[in-house]
């Protein structure tokens, strides 16, 4: 059978199966759910823009940025060495190194398989609720992703300059430092900046396990049914993400052009 037709059938089948998992007979909407929806939408036109609340939102935004940045830098610091080992650019052929490479790849996969909020929760039970737990929880899965991408980028650099380095007597470490890394750096930087946007969003939801930031304020406002504040905080979050997105895409454009 034509592979595209097979794909269509598989995707349609999966979607149909998933629809059956919803219990359509039960009340899908709360009693009073439409009332809340109306309240939420009405609040959009009466945003809370009082100076005192704007100050709260601004300081929460900064906290979120700080967690995201700290987490991402730690992720780079963990991901770079792991990525180098996983790329096998420290030399191949020796069975011990090959085993090390496979082990690191498996570890990277394990790190990134678990969502950062699940990591956060596990870490908080393990080491206690603290800002460091949040930074670590962000850094662990992001190190898994960055490490894998770094490994791929390091593997994809053109071979010819590396051969030239080897011919002139450079060791594998020399080839890595003066050949692979400088050539891979633009792509690595570009991907890391792309992840910055995601890190902001991730940092915003750590509130759920009790860490401060935009999500924390959002949850307080939601608990008090203050939808005017909820919308203001949402717009702060959107503005933050869009700003970081603009920054990171301008970096990526200038690196790839």
């Amino acid at each position: 059978m034509d592979s595209r037709r097979l794909l269509t059938i598989l995707l349609a089948g999966a979607l149909a199966w998933s629809l059956f998992s919803v219990d359509w007979d039960r009340d899908l909407v709360h009693p009073g759910g439409f009332g809340s929806l109306a309240d939420i939408l009405a609040a959009l036109f009466s945003l809370d823009l009082s100076p005192s609340f704007l100050k709260v939102a601004l300081s929460a935004s900064w906290t979120t940025v700080a967690y995201a940045t700290a987490g991402l830098t730690l992720a780079c610091a963990i991901g770079l060495p792991l990525g180098i080992v996983a790329s096998g650019s420290l030399g191949r052929g020796i069975p011990a190194r090959l085993a090390g490479m496979a082990a690191v790849r498996l570890m990277l996969a394990l790190l990134r398989s678990v969502h950062e909020l699940v990591w956060a929760w596990l870490l908080i039970v393990a080491i206690g609720l603290s800002p460091m737990a949040a930074v670590l929880a962000l850094a662990i899965p992001y190190a898994g992703i960055l490490g894998r991408i770094y490994a791929e980028v390091l593997n994809d650099v053109p071979e010819a300059p590396l051969r030239a380095l080897r011919a002139s007597g450079a060791s594998e470490v020399g080839v890595l430092l003066y050949g692979r890394l400088p050539m891979a750096l633009p792509d690595m930087l570009s991907y890391t900046f792309y992840r910055f946007e995601c890190a902001i969003r991730s940092a915003a939801i750590f509130s759920f396990v009790g860490v401060r930031g935009l999500g924390y304020e959002l949850q307080i406002s939601l608990d008090d049914l203050l939808f005017e504040q909820v919308w203001t905080l949402l717009f702060f979050l959107v503005a933050l993400v869009v700003l970081v997105d603009l920054w990171s895409s301008s970096v990526r454009r200038s690196l790839t052009s």
Binding site: H30, G33, L37, R201, F208, G215, L218, L222
Partner: peptide, 15 residues
Amino acid sequence: SVPELVWALLIVFVL
């Protein structure tokens, strides 16, 4: 820009 979890927090007010 709004994470899934925040959407979920809002949606459970309605659904």
